[in-house]
C-alpha cells in the first residue's frame, strides 16, 4: 500500500507500465541491428538506461533498484568494458594486430543480422557498459542526493552565510 503512494500519479504509472517494455525492446533492437541500420551501442545503451530512469521517475527509487541494484550495475559496467578489451586482445592472438576483425564475412552474408564479424559483439558490450554506467550516475546524482540532503543543514548553512555577509 505504501509503495502505491510513492512517485507520480496513477495515470503516469499506468502509461509507464504499458510503454516500458516497448522502449526496452527498441533499445535492444537499436543495439543488435547497429551494424545494419542507424544506431549502435552508444544510443542503444542510453535508451536502455532511459527505461530505468523512467521507472525511477514514475515509481520512486525502489522499483528499478530491485530489478537492477547498483552493485549489479557496476558489475555490468565493468563486464562490458572487459568484453570490449577482450575482443581487441583476441584480435591480437587469433589474427595479426590489436583490435583486428578476426571473423571474416563472406559476400553472401552481407545485410544479415549475423555478419560483420566482431562488430555486433562490440556493440553489445558497449551497450551494456554505457547503459549501466548512465543508470548508475543517474541513481547517484538525481535521486540519492536530493533525498539525503538534510533540510536543517541547509538552514544552518544559510544562517551562517547570512551572518558572514552582514560582516
Amino acid at each position: 500500500m505504501k509503495e502505491e503512494e510513492k512517485g507520480l500519479s496513477t495515470i503516469v504509472k499506468v502509461v509507464t507500465r504499458w510503454i516500458v517494455g516497448f522502449i526496452l525492446l527498441f533499445g535492444i533492437y537499436i543495439v543488435i541491428f547497429g551494424h545494419l541500420t542507424p544506431g549502435g551501442g552508444f544510443p542503444g545503451g542510453v535508451i536502455i538506461a532511459g527505461v530505468f530512469v523512467l521507472l525511477t521517475l514514475s515509481f520512486g527509487r525502489e522499483v528499478p533498484l530491485r530489478k537492477l541494484n547498483s552493485t549489479l550495475a557496476s558489475e555490468l559496467d565493468s563486464f562490458g568494458a572487459l568484453v570490449f578489451l577482450l575482443v581487441g586482445i583476441l584480435g591480437l592472438y587469433l589474427a595479426t594486430y590489436f583490435a583486428q576483425n578476426f571473423i571474416t564475412t563472406f559476400p553472401q552474408q552481407y545485410f544479415r543480422p549475423f555478419s560483420a564479424g566482431v562488430i555486433p559483439i562490440c556493440n553489445l558490450a558497449i551497450g551494456l557498459k554505457v547503459g549501466a554506467s548512465i543508470f548508475m550516475v543517474f541513481i547517484i546524482l538525481a535521486v540519492t542526493r536530493v533525498i539525503s540532503v538534510g533540510e536543517g543543514r541547509m538552514k544552518m548553512l544559510r544562517k551562517r552565510t547570512g551572518r558572514r555577509r552582514r560582516k
Binding site: 550516475v137 546524482l141 542526493r145 540532503v149 541547509m154 544559510r158 551562517r160 552565510t161
Partner: peptide, 19 residues
C-alpha cells in the same frame, strides 16, 4: 554527458558546502 554529470555533481557539492 559524462562531463555534464561530473560538473553537476561538483556543483551540488559546492552548494552543500556553501549554500
Amino acid at each position: 554527458f559524462g562531463i555534464l554529470a561530473l560538473a553537476v555533481s561538483i556543483a551540488i557539492r559546492i552548494y552543500e558546502r556553501f549554500g
